[in-house]
């Protein structure tokens, strides 16, 4: 078990390093113009620009810049925002809780709803309930996040006037963004749970449990669900990536001051240190979530130890 955990962590380290390298190279190669010039603004004197160049280490050879970038990033220093004129990490850390909260609640509600619908459709396979729910699932699975968000605003905020349109001051502000992201999560998990449950319900050990005369509620909830959970846990971990990426859209629709909106704003303003840091932070968060998911996975499925 310990060995597995160590090996899993050992895989995450080079992955993070690779991502940091790509982010560094992309920004140096693809960005036209001098970052110092951008930071200095239009009315800067050549002396000021030279000073900024020096403080950013831009006058050193590229490999040295790369090492400095790695060292600074490891210490949580990702540079200064060109627009906000503050350390980017400070800004990101104040925005992070919003994104984490919305992602967390969406994963939780979406997964719970998806499991419920998935179990119902698997048990009632072939009946009208299954057929109806499957149609509903395919429909909601196909609605793009941004349109769903807008439609929810149109119905609940503009039409019924029971929820606020934009902002992040009360809990009501989080209902629509979480609902928007939960729908996608629920349909994903429901589809997966259904197929996984159907496969397990046909397995020999379920037949054994049934022939022992165990109540069918116990068979479904204990024997079948527990075994179906294994592939579902992995997908929940991977889906966090989609939700973090989806935050870009929901945060911009609902005006939430999260990391996704920071990223879009930074792209619009060509605030390169900010772009770099948001991409890196979201990617690293995603890697950590999946690391934790893999550890849970090893805990749930004892077979992992031997592989």
């Amino acid at each position: 078990m310990n060995k597995y955990i160590l090996r899993r962590i050992a895989i995450a380290v080079p992955l993070i390093l690779a991502i940091m390298t790509i982010v560094f190279v992309m920004l140096r190669v693809a960005v036209p113009g001098d970052p110092a010039l951008l930071l200095a603004g239009d009315q800067a004197t050549p002396e000021l620009i030279e000073k900024i160049r020096e403080s950013l280490g831009l006058n050193r050879p590229i490999w040295e810049q790369y090492l400095i970038f790695l060292r600074n990033a490891a210490m949580g220093d990702m540079g200064i925002s060109i627009i906000h004129r503050q350390p980017v990490m400070d800004i990101i850390f104040s925005a992070f809780p919003f994104t984490v909260a919305v992602t967390f609640y969406s994963v939780t509600f979406g997964t719970a709803l998806g499991l419920l619908v998935g179990i119902i459709t698997a048990i009632k396979r072939g009946t009208w309930i299954d057929n109806l729910l499957m149609v509903v699932i395919v429909f909601f699975y196909s609605i793009p996040t941004f349109w769903l968000g807008i439609m929810l605003i149109l119905i609940f905020a503009v039409g019924l006037r029971i929820l606020p349109v934009q902002g992040a001051t009360t809990w009501q502000h989080f209902v629509l963004p979480v609902a928007t992201l939960s729908v996608g999560q629920a349909t994903l998990i429901a589809r997966l749970t259904r197929s996984s449950m159907i496969e397990i319900l046909n397995a020999d050990f379920i037949r054994t449990a049934r022939s022992k005369g165990l109540p069918s509620r116990k068979i479904i909830l204990v024997h079948a669900l527990k075994n179906s959970l294994i592939p579902i846990i992995t997908v929940v971990g991977l889906s966090v990536g989609g939700l973090l990426g989806g935050a870009v859209i929901t945060e911009s629709i609902f005006g939430l001051p999260g990391v996704g909106r920071l990223a879009i704003e930074a792209i619009g303003n060509r605030d390169y240190p900010m772009i770099q840091a948001t991409v890196l932070m979201v990617a690293i968060t995603f890697i950590f979530v999946n690391l934790i998911v893999d550890l849970i996975y090893a805990f749930v499925d004892p077979r992992i130890h031997y592989s």
Partner: peptide, 11 residues
């Protein structure tokens, strides 16, 4: 794949 969803594309 380590870059989550839309973020890489947007970037």
């Amino acid at each position: 794949l380590a870059f989550p969803g839309l973020i890489l594309i947007i970037w």
